[in-house]
């Protein structure tokens, strides 16, 4: 099954008000061309789930700069003053989640778990409104699964069906997010025929990926 399409056609599947997961860590591993296409479409009222707010006009910052984000669920915003300005102005509602709790909540959604027990955040503002569960004398917070309508992810290499291979630290949240959204769109730097990628090297199997968009290579 050939899943290759263009960035513009792919992002048309994102609807106003959608919850969108976006891969990357400070823009490394962010699907820049999908984000640029989405920003151009002006699909707004989005809830974004991402590691950090990246930079103004870069990574998820492209959506924030374009005024398309209503709510942001992330672990860090310190590199993007724009999100803080928009939060202060009441334009964006920001929810901070410890990064390792964010990874596990996404994983829980993708792996079909009802939640995960994590001690991170005990004794801090993070525990507000959450159930504390004791197991063998140790306390944990019950953290619920976090899923999305769409995941926009990035990989180094893919075949036409969407078997994905990553490079360097650009892997980060991408393989997790591929498991936790109804529609998964992968931007890839290199596209090869089916059979070219050694099955031993595949990190995200194609069954998780719905659409593949080829990006320009940077290297």
């Amino acid at each position: 099954m050939d899943k290759v399409t263009t960035a513009i056609d792919a992002v048309k599947r994102v609807k106003q008000g959608s919850t969108v997961m976006i891969g990357g860590f400070l823009s490394v591993g962010a699907p820049q061309q999908l984000l640029a296409a989405l920003a151009k479409q002006m699909i707004n009222e989005l809830t974004i789930i991402c590691c950090a707010a990246d930079y103004p006009q870069d990574g998820v910052g492209r959506l924030i700069s374009a005024g398309l984000v209503k709510r942001a669920i992330l672990s860090h915003s310190g590199t993007n003053p724009e999100i803080e300005e928009r939060a202060a102005a009441g334009e964006i509602e920001v929810e901070f989640i410890p990064q390792g709790t964010l990874t596990e909540r996404i994983r829980a959604a993708g792996m079909g778990l009802g939640g995960v027990l994590i001690s991170t955040g005990l004794g801090t503002a993070i525990e507000e409104g959450k159930r504390t569960i004791e197991v063998d004398g140790n306390s944990f917070l019950l953290e619920k699964p976090l899923k999305a309508d769409v995941a926009l992810i990035k990989a180094a290499r893919s075949d036409h069906t969407g078997n994905l291979v990553y490079h360097g630290a650009a892997r980060n949240f991408n393989p997790l997010m591929a498991t936790a959204a109804d529609l998964v769109i992968a931007e890839v730097e290199e596209l090869v025929p089916v059979g070219e990628i050694d099955p031993d090297q595949v990190v995200t199997p194609a069954i998780f990926v719905d659409l593949v968009v080829q990006a320009k290579r940077r290297r």
Binding site: S75, H76, S77, I83, E84, P98, G121, I126
Partner: peptide, 16 residues
């Protein structure tokens, strides 16, 4: 009085 900058991985690091 400030929205961020957020904890990133710091809460996990100090806990783990």
């Amino acid at each position: 009085g400030r929205s961020g900058p957020g904890m990133g991985g710091a809460m996990d690091l100090v806990t783990g």
